[in-house]
Design a protein around this nucleic acid. Structure first.
Length: 429
RNA sequence: GGAGAAAUACCCAAGUCUGGUUGAAGGGAUCGGUCUUGAAAACCGAGAGGUCGGCGACGGCGCGGGGGUUCGAAUCCCUCUUUCUCCGCCA
């Protein structure tokens, strides 16, 4: 959500930004908001003046009553009562306009960074840098669920009987590897100075509505029957809602957190659930990083954060690349964003494992997350988030890149302590 | 789940029975000063309080959230949420 002052003062900039994002159908919104804002302020001024008059007369009534002049008081009472209709209609108009403006403002995208590549969709995202050699072995890499199956590590049939499509049982060493990756990622971020946090996995509708659009909500969120509670789709939901309407002390910034949670997603819409394997499922686990900082620091944090992802994957011997999101592929709240993609030797291409974003003040403005400066002024913070690691999807990269010709899988050194010292997983069949 | 009590500004807290000179007493903290080698303590003083509109003067709204009664609500009514105490149940 952008500052409405931008629309009052620089509509061209806002429109230009919309064009850059290939959302021309949203262009009329800018003038609509501009005009509604003028009407809103006019209605508010009128209503406020009438209310001021009413308050003044009410005080008079109080004074007269105290003096015992009931007749005069009654007369004024009638006058005030006559004002009620006009005040009501103006107040209603003011509220309706305010609500309508807010709805439109929610849809107007955040101003994007100057250096975001311009492009209509994800095919125009730009590879910026590679880290590690994307190795193509001279033997065939099986599909990840087949690799898991060789260790008796995955049972989707049972999951389908028990929970339906889109669920899995992870078993034995594969399950342990899953936990090891999460524990490693947690400790990696703690070592970077982030604070570990376990948030609520269910949040009430007021919190849900605060952190996502209606469309997202209906496509993603599972609702608990008979309760005002939803299962979170990512810990970012509870982590950001934590700060809604809060004023943070300047010396508490930056707030750097790494949160863990299971994530529950209906995955209604474009993609659907993948039949084979664990790439897209209804339930997964994720370690996330979330940063709230002063506006002047957010760009530096953005660079630090995506670099953490690269570093983490490199310690796991997984080649990655940084893919910069182009204007059309940027979600509306984002100022800039990049994906860290891991190398898949089986598919011989990179696939997304982390998504790092700087939302500047767009999210903070929407949720009223501010900080108080030394001089007492309040300003919106900047918010950023990035995936640390999201197994089981991440296991795909891990298994494929460490798969040996004989069907075994090497365990990267950094994970071995979390695997009871095991250096290699040997197939059971 | 049952019974009771409570929610006031950064913090503590008065006011709520008896609606109107309380848009919020009084503290603490904050800031300035006196004193002191410096600090603390003590004393003196000050402004401010959240939010929206307005260039401003100023005005609207704000006493947990939402609604209602009234000319007028922190104060009365309804509702939701949260906290505390006791009982019950339970990882």
């Amino acid at each position: 959500m952008i500052d409405i002052k931008l629309i009052r003062e620089n509509r061209d900039l806002v429109k230009e930004n919309i064009k850059k994002k290939f959302q021309d159908k949203k262009l009329p919104l800018v003038d609509e908001v501009y005009e509604m804002d003028v009407d809103y302020r006019e209605a508010k001024a009128k209503a406020d003046n009438l209310k001021a008059e009413k308050n003044r007369l009410s005080d008079q009534i109080g004074a007269l009553m105290r003096e015992g002049k009931k007749d005069e008081a009654m007369k004024i009472k009638e006058d005030v009562a006559k004002m009620a209709d006009e005040i009501n209609s103006l107040t209603t108009k003011e509220e309706e306009l305010s609500k309508a403006i807010k709805e439109k403002m929610m849809v107007i995208p955040n101003i994007i960074a100057d250096d975001v590549p311009i492009g209509e969709d994800d095919t125009h995202n730009v590879e910026e840098q590679r880290f590690g050699e994307p190795v193509v072995p001279d033997y065939e890499i099986p599909y990840h669920s087949d690799i898991m199956a060789r260790f008796n590590g995955l049972d989707k049939d049972a999951a389908a009987r028990v929970s339906g499509n889109g669920f899995y049982y992870l078993v034995g060493d594969v399950a342990r590897l899953h936990s090891a990756v999460l524990a490693y990622a947690r400790d990696f971020m703690i070592d970077k100075g982030f604070t570990y946090c376990i948030p609520p996995y269910m949040i009430r509708s007021a919190a849900v509505d605060g952190v996502m659009s209606f469309e997202e909500k209906s496509n993603m969120m599972y609702k608990i029957e008979g309760e005002d509670l939803y299962l979170i789709g990512t810990s970012e939901h509870s982590m950001i809602a934590k700060f809604k309407d809060q004023i943070i002390k300047e010396n508490e910034l930056p707030i750097t957190m790494t949160s863990y949670s299971p994530c529950f997603r209906k995955e209604v819409g474009a993609h659907g659930i993948e039949e084979r394997g664990v790439y897209r499922i209804h339930q997964f686990e994720k370690q996330e990083m979330v940063v709230l900082c002063k506006p002047e620091d957010s760009e530096a944090w953005y660079d630090k954060m995506w670099n953490y992802s690269v570093e983490l994957f490199r310690t796991l011997d997984i080649p990655v690349r940084k893919l910069v999101c182009c204007s059309g592929d940027l979600a509306d709240l984002k100022y800039r964003s990049c994906d860290i993609e891991a190398w898949s030797p089986r598919q011989q291409k990179y696939f997304e494992v982390c998504s790092c974003s700087n939302l500047t003040d767009a999210q903070a403005r929407r949720l009223a997350i501010r900080y108080k400066k030394e001089n007492g002024d309040k300003e919106f913070v900047h918010t950023l988030n990035n995936t640390v690691i999201a197994p089981p999807r991440m296991l795909i990269a891990l298994l494929e890149n460490n798969y040996q010709k004989d069907g075994s899988v090497k365990i990267p050194k950094v994970l071995q302590p979390y695997m009871g010292g095991k250096e290699i997983l040997t197939p059971l069949k």
